[in-house]
Design a protein around this nucleic acid. Structure first.
Length: 270
DNA sequence: AAATTCTCCTGAAGGC
DNA sequence: TGCCTTCAGGAGAATT
């Protein structure tokens, strides 16, 4: 399930193969993704060259001559670099065909999106009101503390709210809160500035480490070359219900917070 | 305005 | 073996 590290891993995997290349064709086999894939994608992209690829939150931005292709991997989406002419399989919904290679969007659960933005893509409705990137300087203790003061509710929901900070999904929210020793259900407005400083550092560290490991593979995530992500081996709490806490040995607990499975150590996290 | 619930979808896993 | 149920989950939309 792609979170920020998986999207960043994907970006780094595909960019060297595609930047500077010319699009020769587009195939849409299944347009019914989260939003309909634009029917005229072929007209928009053909004979256009890919200038660069960037990332905003969990969106990939493929910058072309005439606009930007936005790709979101949703829950189960992935991008693969393949030789042109490679036969497609089930759930291979969109192909962007380049002169020398093929970019294939695969997404069994179809929560992902392939969209077009012609003007400034950062002003696209889906990107416009996003909070800061977690790895930038703007995301710091003072910022998070100020956001927390304004609201009531579990701190886990706060850090998973994309208006507050982007890219922290369920896996890394659980892991960062464990690393920071903060109980996920603790109300965000009852945490000190100092502890927010620690949480910010833990979020940055967790994400950075996961990017270095090529992301986390739970069921279906693969890097562009087909390898799994190796951060899975470093998960302390996520998916480890009733297994011993790596610090104190007590069983990891699981409960629902904000409709999401939450994993924590009741002793180490307060 | 913010918090909660609903929704999209398929595959894996568990129960019988 | 197979059918049925449950769960997982990003994040916008709808609802409270």
């Amino acid at each position: 399930m792609p979170e920020l590290p998986e999207v960043e891993t994907t970006l780094r995997g595909i960019a060297p193969h595609l930047v500077g290349q010319l699009v020769t064709g587009v195939v849409i086999r299944q347009p019914a993704l989260r939003w309909p894939v634009p029917e005229d994608l072929d007209v928009l992209l053909e004979n256009s060259s890919l200038k660069r690829i960037s990332r905003r939150a969990k969106y990939l931005l493929l910058h072309f001559d005439r606009g930007t292709l936005l790709i979101h991997l949703g829950m189960s989406g992935s991008l693969r670099i393949l030789p042109s002419g490679m036969p497609h399989g089930k759930h291979d919904h969109v192909d962007i065909i380049f002169a020398h290679t093929l970019l294939r969007f695969h997404d069994p659960r179809r929560f992902g999106a392939v969209l077009w933005a012609d003007a400034n893509p950062l002003q696209h409705p889906l990107l416009r009101s996003l909070g800061p990137e977690p790895l930038c300087d703007q995301f710091n203790a003072e910022y998070l503390y100020s956001k927390a003061k304004q609201r009531y509710g579990p701190v886990k929901n706060l850090i998973m709210n994309s208006r507050v900070v982007v890219g922290v999904g369920n896996i890394y929210a659980n892991e960062a809160l464990f690393a920071a020793g903060i109980h996920p259900a603790r109300s965000g407005n009852r945490i000190s500035r100092k502890r927010y400083g620690r949480l910010v550092e833990c979020i940055k560290q967790t994400l950075t480490s996961a990017i270095e490991q090529g992301g986390t593979t739970l069921q279906d995530f693969q890097q562009v070359d087909g390898k799994p992500g190796y951060f899975t081996q470093e998960l302390c709490v996520y998916g480890r219900t009733n297994k011993p806490c790596p610090v104190c040995g007590l069983p990891i607990r699981q409960k629902q917070i904000g409709q999401r499975s939450t994993f924590y150590c009741n002793k180490c996290q307060r």
